[in-house]
């Protein structure tokens, strides 16, 4: 059974002037780890706020745990955990005080649900007397997650939990989410980091308030329409410009140490040989050229391209 359902949800601000979310529909299954992937301003936060009953949609309907987000707002608020974009903690309260406060607000106690947060809490426990404002980004993130979990929610909404947090903490965070999922909690998470998409079971790519694609990460990648190649040479920025000038190239984007390219029409050994020859003539040396699997980010760029 779908735990979260969105039916043609639209949301605007400033009397319709700013379109935050346009006709968005998707479903999240019970116990699923679902990712909303898109840049800042794509409408992720608005969707989360509609689902957590904080905003009324302009059009469409939505339900969480079988309850309507407009009518049953009180009941929904008892069942969901929510971690807003900014780690919403009381900076002037200690780690322990924050946790105890939120536990009480949610009508429970830390002891009652300690098993659920134990794995996470032990990592911040050495700092339990420290004020939340004095914690690092990674620690704040863990404390905020503990606070959102303290009442054993049925559905967990995490709005950009990994923004501004370094790679190590991000990896640890995703490990935690996997363990939570095993407990049967439905998790909706949003992120601007494309590389985190593969850690979700299913993802929705979103830009300008519209869904570009919804599927499993593997399926999204499979739908990439062309063969993708990686290329590098000694002078990467010059290489990018030179390749973009070639008329038989469809796209060329920098991707870490390589540039990713697709060909416009024919895509065979001949055209590849021509590419290397053309680049050699422009004094590029030590060219490395190989086929490469598409990433979510490649797909996102391609989808944006098609959209415009």
């Amino acid at each position: 059974m779908a735990d979260v359902v969105l039916n043609h949800i639209s949301k605007t601000y400033n009397k319709g002037e700013v379109k935050a979310v346009t006709d968005v529909s998707f479903e999240v299954e019970k116990g699923e780890l679902f990712g909303l992937i898109g840049p800042d301003g794509a409408g992720k936060t608005s969707i989360f706020r509609v689902l957590t009953t904080l905003l009324l949609p302009d059009a469409g309907s939505a339900s969480v745990n079988g309850l309507d987000v407009v009518k049953d707002w009180k009941a929904i608020r008892k069942r969901v955990g929510y971690m807003p974009g900014k780690f919403s903690l009381y900076q002037d309260l200690t780690v322990e005080e924050n946790l105890n406060f939120f536990a009480t607000v949610f009508n429970t106690s830390v002891a009652e649900n300690y098993d659920l947060i134990k794995d996470i809490y032990v990592q911040i426990e050495p700092f339990k007397d420290r004020r939340a404002g004095k914690l690092s980004g990674g620690m704040k993130q863990k404390l905020a997650l503990c606070c959102a979990l303290i009442h054993r929610p049925k559905v967990l909404f995490l709005d950009e939990p990994t923004t501004g947090v370094d790679t190590v903490s991000r990896k640890e965070f995703w490990e935690m989410l996997k363990r939570l999922k095993e407990q049967g909690i439905t998790i909706l998470v949003s992120t601007p980091y494309m590389d985190e998409a593969t850690l979700c079971e299913r993802i929705a790519l979103i830009q300008d308030g519209k869904i570009l694609s919804i599927d499993t990460p593997a399926q999204v990648v499979k739908q990439f329409p062309k063969n993708l190649y990686a290329i590098k040479s000694e002078r990467m920025s010059q290489l990018l410009r030179d390749i973009r000038h070639l008329d038989y190239i469809d796209s060329c984007n920098s991707f870490g140490e390589y540039h990713h390219i697709t060909f416009r029409d024919e895509d065979d050994y001949e055209i590849q040989k021509k590419l290397i020859a053309d680049l050699n003539s422009k004094n590029h040396e030590y060219i490395e050229f190989k086929a490469t699997p598409a990433t979510i980010e490649d797909c996102f760029i391609k989808l944006l391209d098609q959209h415009e």
Binding site: L54, R77, V80, Y82, P84, G85, S88, L89, F102, F106
Partner: peptide, 14 residues
Amino acid sequence: EKGTMEVLLVSPMH
């Protein structure tokens, strides 16, 4: 401003 109001609103507390 700090976003804690959001969390409080999404809680069983009226």
